[in-house]
Write a protein that binds this DNA or RNA. Structure first.
Lengths: 138, 138
DNA sequence: GGTAATTTCATACTTTAGTATGAGTCGTTT
DNA sequence: AAACGACTCATACTAAAGTATGAAATTACC
């Protein structure tokens, strides 16, 4: 947050400098009017694009980044979360068991725990809920 | 596409007019230099923001809009697609049957057809595949 | 008007998913 | 050391999901 304020302040300063420089150049008539105006136009155009990009980029991030704090607050263990991710990829219990080198019984236990903690009745519903909680990537 | 070119042309024209107007105002000294520069700056800033917004908006649309043509090319019927969407929402066959006012048998038939057409072994995998094909919203 | 595709439903069956319970192991914490 | 949480596994069971097959009604299309 402090960084943002600092950058913003520097930007304002730079703009004021540019402003003064422009008026000075015009008064002293060292440079042609068109060049100054074109320069101003380009600079502000770029600034507009950059600011807009930053704002929209933040939006995209918040909708795609996974919320690790929420995972803990829900009470999902590391292994349970792993299983949840594999479920979301469309794997069966047997396939998950083979992928994680454990028995299918173990996966069933994990799945049951995940369903309880996410308050879901089925694995498909768990996927949906996990997505809404921004716990998994989609 | 023609519309875009037309708008772009109009924009360029408007900018040139503004440009000429600015230089004229400066030469005739009817307006203060600062006001003109500030005006130019604001106009180009806004233009930059708008253009950037349009470009990024298009990106978002392409990643989120569902591909109706692909649904047809896969061979999914209207009802089968409906069922697919309900599956993605995490509903069971029974719940889907109640929501669409048909029997569970019917839903099972539709689900089987969907799985074959999407080349999926399970409904969870069907969700994943449908997502990759940009057939359903996520 | 006939044909094809869609939608509907049923029955019987196999497979997968999910629940309940109990228990052993391992690492951490107190 | 004892207690705790996380991970593992098994067995036995119930519930859903998915397959196969056949068939009737509806709709769409030529």
């Amino acid at each position: 947050m402090k960084k943002t304020i600092l950058i913003f302040g520097a930007l304002v300063l730079a703009l004021l400098t540019l402003f003064q420089l422009s008026t000075y150049s015009l008064v002293s008539s060292n440079t042609s009017i068109e060049v100054i105006i074109a320069g101003i136009a380009i600079v502000f155009f770029v600034i507009g694009v950059l600011i807009n990009k930053k704002v929209l980029h933040k939006d995209k991030d918040t909708t795609r980044e996974i919320d690790h704090k929420k995972i803990k607050s829900i009470g999902l263990s590391k292994r349970e979360y792993e299983v949840l991710c594999e479920i979301a990829l469309g794997l069966s219990n047997k396939e998950i068991a083979e992928k994680l080198f454990v028995s299918e019984s173990t996966i069933k236990t994990h799945v049951s725990n995940v369903l309880v903690k996410l308050d879901a009745k089925r694995r498909t519903q768990a996927i949906q809920i996990a997505k809404e909680l921004q716990i998994i990537n989609f």
